[in-house]
Simulated scan of single mutants.
Amino acid sequence: MKLVVYKKNDLIFSMLFKSNELLDIKVDNINDPEYSSSIFLGKIKSIANGVEGYFVDIGLKKDGYLPFKEADKEYKIGDYVVVQVKKEPSKFKGAKLTTKLSFKGKYIIYYEADKSVKTSHLFDENFKSDYVDKVYRLLREKESVIIRTQAKNVDISKIEQELEFYRKKAKLIRDISHKAIMQLEPKEPCYISMIKDYVGGIEKIVVSDIEIYNNIVSFILANDLNINVEMIIDKEKLENLYEVEKHINRLLSKYVWLESGGFLVIEETEAMTTIDVNSGKNTCDCIESSSYSTNLEAAKEIPRQIKLRNLGGIIMIDFIFMKDQAHRKEVLDVLKNGFSKDNVQTTVYGYTALGLMEIARKKTGRSLFQTIKASKQENIPSAV
């Protein structure tokens, strides 16, 4: 696989390719950064018993909300507290906070909670038991880890090294003596996060910016990774090789054309995302047959589109009506199978009474469109 990191004005696109297929994409907005997983030293501004939490000044426009159940102890107004952002601030609400720190590594996700070991849902069941026992014995009280899929082929010593690194990092952050509201650690760049997510699978990284190139090389050397890094400053050459703008523009459009001639209409709203499946040019004398073939193709493409666009929350899909129950079940099974490969928690609830497909996917920051929409640069296509 190749990771292409492409900077355009205030946006940094991190795009993962296998051959010519786009597998994943993440975007950093330099002028309007996301705060998910960022760590702050904040100050308790008020105690809100009605909503069972504290409001914490962390230096952003809106105070963050720290639920009592996410606090490590009882605080008073004016107390300083180290907090991490669990949920991005929105137009109407401040960030949701926790005092229980977590860090994503190459092989584990380390977090402060009652001692436990979990594994990625993509893990082989036969591999879990012995490995989990070994990792559990490495933990201290109030330490938990999630073993990532990438850990399957590494020695347990690598897990131990990463665990010790994040254990020390958490202690250093907590031991800070300075008393002022500040950001202690920003959200890591998407290109670093993607290297961690696909460690062992990325063979080459292509970069269009010297500063990003230096950051990536430093990370690779520090983590003893065997990845070739190439810099291509000529953006026209980069576009000819990887068609980055073409891929981005397709993902910003609400229309997705299927090979059969059918198409999807994907629309984001405040409440939910809706996906409408249309037969388009895929028509024949048998309506059931054309509906079934279009729906089946859509069910294969929809999980990919949801992942690439980073859509989360409630997602409703309006498939073309089918009478045949076997056809309806097969479309549902294909959709579930597509989401089984997604590393973001997704639940497919099935058909509602109105025949809509109901899905819930964990939100992991802004959607692709929201991130790009927040950019002030020109020539960004609208979602039409």
Rank of each mutant, 00 (worst) to 15 (best):
V5N: 06
D10W: 11
D10I: 11
M15D: 10
K18S: 13
S19C: 14
S19V: 15
E21S: 11
D24S: 02
I30L: 11
N31A: 09
P33T: 06
E34T: 13
E34V: 13
Y35E: 11
I44E: 01
K45P: 00
K45A: 02
V51N: 06
V51M: 07
D57F: 02
D57I: 04
L66I: 00
P67L: 02
F68D: 00
I77M: 01
Y80H: 00
V82C: 01
V82F: 00
V85W: 01
K86G: 09
S90H: 12
K91C: 15
F92C: 15
K93A: 14
A95K: 11
A95T: 11
T98Y: 08
K100Q: 13
L101V: 05
K106C: 09
Y110I: 08
Y110H: 07
A113I: 11
V117F: 04
H121D: 10
H121V: 09
L122Q: 10
D124W: 02
D124Y: 04
K152C: 06
N153A: 10
S157Y: 14
Q161W: 08
E162F: 01
Y166C: 00
R167G: 00
K169W: 01
L172I: 03
L172M: 04
L172H: 03
S177M: 08
M182H: 13
L184Q: 05
K187V: 15
P189L: 07
S193Q: 08
D197F: 03
V199F: 01
G201D: 10
K204Y: 03
S218W: 07
F219L: 05
I227N: 06
N228L: 15
V229P: 09
L238A: 14
E239M: 12
N240M: 14
Y242W: 12
N249P: 02
N249W: 03
R250G: 06
K254E: 07
E259G: 11
E268M: 08
E268R: 10
I275L: 05
D276M: 09
G280D: 07
K281C: 10
K281Y: 09
N282T: 07
E288C: 00
S290I: 03
S291T: 03
T294H: 03
T294C: 06
L296M: 13
E297F: 09
A298S: 14
R309H: 08
R309L: 07
N310L: 06
I315V: 13
M316N: 11
M316E: 11
F319D: 10
I320Y: 08
F321H: 15
F321E: 15
M322P: 07
K323F: 11
A326G: 11
H327W: 06
K329Y: 13
E330W: 05
V331M: 06
N337R: 14
N337E: 13
K341P: 03
Q345F: 10
Q345C: 05
T346E: 02
T346N: 01
V348E: 00
Y349Q: 05
G350A: 04
Y351H: 06
A353Y: 12
G355S: 12
L356S: 13
M357W: 10
I359F: 10
I359H: 09
A360I: 15
K362M: 07
K362T: 06
K363S: 07
T364W: 04
G365Q: 01
G365L: 02
G365F: 00
G365W: 01
T371K: 01
I372S: 00
K376I: 07
K376F: 07
E378G: 10
N379F: 12
P381C: 08
A383F: 14
V384F: 15
